[in-house]
Design a protein around this nucleic acid. Structure first.
Lengths: 141, 141
DNA sequence: CTTTGTGCAAATTCTTTGCACCAAA
DNA sequence: TTTGGTGCAAAGAATTTGCACAAAG
């Protein structure tokens, strides 16, 4: 498997590249579906049978803390993760739950005046609604 | 206590105005701090000793489903609720956790082209960073 | 009555923690 | 050998569910 990019990303964010960490990072880089902990674990467990969900949690926490990965709270129940840390918005379909990226250019890491001086370090824009598939399904029904 | 506004809001969104529902809605209208279920429950339990947390959950779910209240997922662990359903952004301080409103004008309920046709029904913008107080505290430390 | 709301307790789910073992430097 | 990573099992926390009782029409 090709894991150079994952390895590089880890090193870049000062994370020691263990087998498991590379696997998680690699999964996130190759699967831009904003997977949950469970999805990541389920897939990787096939390749790494000894893998523990705790390790996936540990690794994701580390990745998020170091800024190598984005944590999305768009879903009420579960955390979703995004290997793309560049500024962009998200859209979540109310019907099927899929989360897609929106290439929305927007400001980030800026100072906003108003309620005192807020030092913005992160900005996440969440849209919800119906994706094309579900919308069509609704119309036909 | 003044609860006309709360009562009106419930009726407006076709929710039968029970004592508990009015109390929850009223609390949200008078406390723009984006409280959690627990905060709402704790405060209301003083006025209504028989109040159950389940009822608070039930009520909030109903309010959110009917669109009378906004559910925020800005916080990883807990749900926050907002009685202000008009479009606006939120800022959450990384340090103290407080969530404040940002009077940010933005588009909502629009159609976006790109990943098929997305029918947007809701948009939440989340900023994170340091509020004035915590920023000052950091500087002095 | 009949329907709807309330609230207790138990169950569920996601996530974290404590601790022991393993691996690399 | 010392540090850091992994993984199992248990704990924890937020939320949901099942069900019985109470209230309103």
């Amino acid at each position: 498997m090709v894991t150079e990019a994952a390895h590089k990303r880890l090193v870049q964010f000062q994370i020691k590249p263990s087998l498991q960490r590379i696997a998680v990072m690699n999964y996130l880089l190759n699967n831009r579906t904003h997977p949950t902990v469970d999805e990541i674990y389920s897939h990787l467990a096939k390749e790494i049978p000894t893998l523990s969900k705790t390790t996936v949690y540990n690794t994701l926490k580390l990745l998020v803390d170091q800024g190598a990965v984005l944590l999305l709270n768009i879903d009420k129940n579960t955390q979703h993760f995004d290997g793309d840390v560049a500024p962009h918005a998200h859209f979540r379909c109310i019907e099927c739950g899929r989360i897609v990226d929106l290439p929305q250019p927007r400001v980030s890491k800026i100072n906003v005046t108003g309620v005192g001086e807020l030092q913005i370090t992160e900005c996440q824009v969440y849209y919800k609604g119906y994706c094309a598939d579900c919308r069509n399904a609704k119309i036909q029904a």
